[in-house]
């Protein structure tokens, strides 16, 4: 008998209408339908959701941890990219 792991799926749950689907974990399942059911059983048993997405984990391209410095640190000193950097003229009123 061959021992084979089921593929891994990432689970995204929308907790209520108007909110985004949020990543909440992963499940092992043989296919999309079974992954959907596993996600329902594992992640919505305390009324956490109203909609589920499951995505094959291997369909996600992820940034590499070792690229962290070159990808993200250059943004750290560009505070002028935040709207809070700018003074709002009095005449503009509340934004």
């Amino acid at each position: 008998m061959t021992e084979k792991e089921w593929p891994l799926w990432e689970v995204f749950i929308r907790s209520k209408a108007g909110l985004d689907h949020k990543h909440c974990g992963s499940v092992h399942a043989s296919d999309a339908e079974m992954a959907m059911e596993a996600a329902r059983d594992v992640y919505t048993r305390r009324s956490e959701g109203i909609s589920i997405w499951v995505v094959p984990s291997n369909a996600i391209s992820a940034s590499k941890p070792e690229d962290k410095e070159s990808l993200f640190e250059p943004a750290d000193d560009k505070i002028y990219r935040h709207p809070t950097f700018y003074d709002i003229p009095k005449g503009a009123g509340k934004m």
Partner: peptide, 8 residues
Amino acid sequence: PALEMEIA
């Protein structure tokens, strides 16, 4: 046989 099945 699997965590997912047990919870189900």
